[in-house]
Amino acid sequence: MSDKSPSLPLAERVRKLKLPEDVDRTPSRWQNRLPWLLWLLTLAGCLLLLWRSWRDSSVPTSATAIRTESRAEPGQTSASQPGPAPADPNTVVLEALGYVVPVRKVQVSPKVGGQIIRLYIEEGQRVREGELIAEIDPTKYLHERNRRYALWQQAKARYELLKAGNRPEEIRRAEAAWQEAQAALRQAENDWKRTRLASRAATPEELERTESALQQARQRERALFEQYQLLRLGFRDEEIRQAEAEMLALEAAYRDAEYDLENTRVRSPISGVVLSKRADVGDMVLPNVPSNLSASICDLADLRNLEVDVDISERDLRHIRRRQRCEIRPDAFPQLVLPGKVTRIMPQANRSKASVSVRVGILLPEDVELLPDTRARVRFFAGLADDAK
């Protein structure tokens, strides 16, 4: 079937496709302003979003501050309140899991080193303060104590001798010897005078002999007189003080040796329960321990004075304060509820856990026993422990 429409030349068909010459090709006024309108609308939307975000972040903060100030008691500042607390003191503000730990836990170490010859404890045994728990071989310390005691007694005797002075008999004997020397001196002087008067009849040897005897008598009389004076005056004060100092030093050394001997009997420093033994009979223990010896004998803890160690997250720390009332539920006794209160808030946070350790004291009844390192759940109430009746 053939096309019956007349075929037009190509130039004619192109001409028909062109727009008329009288059509206005200039853009309208709204077409020029449309991009500016869109930009202004976008800017207004951003400003509106920023204003709403600022209002949402600032209004709750000021409201919280107003509520905190309204609850502050007269004479207290809002800074003393760790965070907003509910009005009802029986409201549970936080619940956390912790571990039971003893308030007092000690490692019993001997004050002297040596070999354990007797041990009087076992794990789980109750001991009283001052009770004997072990004995260390005392042989070396006994000999040292006896040696220092002998030295002390020797110095003490010398001090007392110097302080008491010379005996009256010794002084009288020295005085008699001096008087005898005076008589001998007078005799020698008389002999020397007679020999000098009879110089013509006396030989030179006799004159020399009498003069020498006179000099010897004078020297002996002077020496005996000085000895008599020393005995009469007694010992010098400096010698007495020196002897006293030596005596006191040796007495201190003896007391130190006696103290070491007494410490071979190791006694319990507190009343509590033996948690673990670290040494046995035959072991060597030393206070300053090298790597191959034991430094302690056992671990003791007072299991009547317990608390729960709870790690509180930093974001929940605002709910915690000292003396806050708590309830403790040990995992070992799920039906048991024990009263307690916040006793300590540690002054340093754990960086790796982003938490702070809080200690909750347990008011433990006489018929209840808890073991250390067991788990317990703690409920923190809004009120203080003294307010809960």
Rank of each mutant, 00 (worst) to 15 (best):
A79S: 07
V14R: 15
L48I: 14
G114D: 03
L10N: 12
R33Q: 09
V23L: 06
G75R: 01
V112N: 05
L43W: 12
E95F: 02
L50K: 10
L97Y: 10
K18H: 14
S53N: 15
D24V: 02
G45C: 11
L17F: 09
S62T: 15
R55F: 09
Q31S: 01
I121A: 01
T91P: 03
K16S: 15
W30Y: 12
Q115C: 07
S78D: 15
T64R: 12
S109N: 10
W30I: 10
L19G: 11
E129P: 11
G45P: 07
Q31F: 03
A44L: 05
R128M: 07
L47R: 03
R25L: 14
R55M: 10
P35I: 04
L40F: 13
L17S: 05
T91M: 01
E123W: 07
Q76C: 11
R15L: 13
S7V: 14
K16T: 15
S53H: 11
R67C: 01
P102L: 03
R25E: 13
S57D: 15
V100E: 03
L38F: 11
L40H: 13
I66H: 02
L48D: 08
V92K: 02
L43Q: 08
S62W: 14
S58A: 08
A65R: 09
E122Q: 09
G75D: 00
L34Q: 02
I116R: 00
P102A: 02
S7A: 05
P27A: 09
G114A: 06
G124T: 00
R128T: 15
G124A: 03
E21Y: 05
W54F: 13
S57Q: 12
V100W: 04
I66T: 13
R126F: 09
Q31C: 06
V108I: 04
Y99K: 07
L47P: 04
A72T: 08
L47H: 06
D22T: 12
P20T: 15
R13I: 12
V112I: 04
D88N: 07
R52P: 13
A96R: 02
T68V: 10
K18E: 14
I121L: 01
R67W: 00
Q107A: 13
D24A: 03
P110A: 03
W30C: 06
V106G: 00
V100T: 05
T42F: 11
Q76H: 06
A96Y: 02
L94C: 00
G114M: 08
L34N: 00
S28V: 11
N32R: 14
S70C: 07
R67Y: 01
V100G: 01
I117H: 01
I66F: 06
I121P: 07
T61E: 14
G98A: 04
V100D: 02
D56P: 14
G83M: 07
W39R: 12
V106I: 05
Y99C: 01
I121C: 02
L119D: 08
P110T: 00
A87C: 06
S57A: 12
G83H: 00
E122P: 08
Q107M: 09
V108S: 00
T77N: 06
L50Y: 12
P9A: 05
T26V: 06
D56M: 13
E69V: 09
T42E: 09
Q81L: 14
P74T: 08
D88W: 03
S58M: 13
E12Y: 07
I116G: 06
L41Q: 09
